[in-house]
Design a protein around this nucleic acid. Structure first.
Lengths: 180, 180
DNA sequence: CTCCAATTATTAGTGCACTAACTATTAGCG
DNA sequence: CGCTAATAGTTAGTGCACTAATAATTGGAG
């Protein structure tokens, strides 16, 4: 309504709370995460825990460092979170064979089975948010652009390469990384 | 688990970490807030504290409830934050005249003076993020749409309206009687 | 006027996210 | 070999954000 021509926008307007992208961004993030809460409660997961599970459903024995890279968070953030996931019975934590420094974080059968319930989460959330798939994709692209803009820190490009895979059906030879 | 049917890409793809809007959103929010950090350190403010100051630069004596509504956060979140802003010398906290329940949060001269330095923050951040004004406005509009989606579709009590002024939409008088 | 309900802010407790400091293990070099 | 640097994870401490419980005040009903 009172939006003047772009050339006339003063510095004063830039300090209005309602003009702040950072404010809208943080509120949106909290709102969306909050919208997940009732859905994820059925899986006995918090939202950050859900993200960890997503990473493990893609690749099961992973190290703490590998997960923290994938989620763009510090290992110190992941560490207590994994402890709670272990307490919930979804993962196991044990020292990796051949490298006593690394920790092999692996899905339990219960954790792997949880994926079936999780399959409904994205659709449920899209419906709850009243967003179409293309809207989600547009917003996702916007966020990736923003992450790239802050490019001081590398945005997490889901480094599947160099991770440990539970491929071998018969042999325990998996994971060049984890087993040193 | 053997490899799933190659034709079924719909639901399985939705659980890929890199496809999650919620993930991109939280990473973007953390990245952008993180980008503010070195800039706000010069003002001796954290990002949430900066948002509180923005609200006070618009309207100076405000109650805790009024600020928490403006920032879409719980009073319990704002309370310790205000205590730290008081310790920094930017605000004062005293019981409001005529209503001993309410707290009158008011800028000190130092807090008011800080606005001059803050005037440079939005421009600095736009430059740091490498975003044009129109890109910022586009992203802001996207975020507002997302916020509206979360507060509209489902009974989400977090009413995050675009404008949080001293206009009581349906609520009690919001802090106008501070100096009663 | 007294008692009860609503309002307002704070505290306690959980969990997330970060930095810095620490332990333990491994690898590399002389 | 043994010392040193690098790697891997955890712990400590700060701060944010929420829910639930608490304390204090106010306003209204009986």
């Amino acid at each position: 309504m009172d939006a003047p021509a772009p050339a006339d926008i003063s510095q004063d307007d830039d300090l209005l709370l309602e003009h702040q992208l950072c404010f809208a961004l943080t509120v949106a993030a909290r709102s969306v995460v909050g919208a997940y809460k009732p859905v994820l409660e059925k899986l006995n997961l918090t939202h950050p825990q859900y993200l960890v599970m997503l990473s493990l459903w893609e690749t099961s024995p992973r190290t703490v460092r590998n997960i923290s890279d994938a989620l763009a968070q510090e290992p110190a953030t992941i560490s207590p979170l994994l402890r709670r996931l272990e307490a919930a019975g979804y993962i196991t934590r044990r020292r990796a064979d051949g490298n006593e420094r690394a920790l092999a974080v692996e899905l339990t059968p219960a954790g792997a089975a949880l994926r079936q319930q999780a399959l409904e989460v994205p659709g449920t959330m899209m419906e709850r948010l009243g967003l179409t798939r293309s809207q989600v994709m547009d917003l996702h692209a916007s966020m990736m652009g923003l992450i790239a803009a802050t490019s001081g820190g590398t945005p997490q490009p889901t480094e599947v390469a160099g991770t440990v895979r539970t491929e071998p059906p018969g042999r325990r030879d998996s994971g060049a990384r984890i087993e040193g």
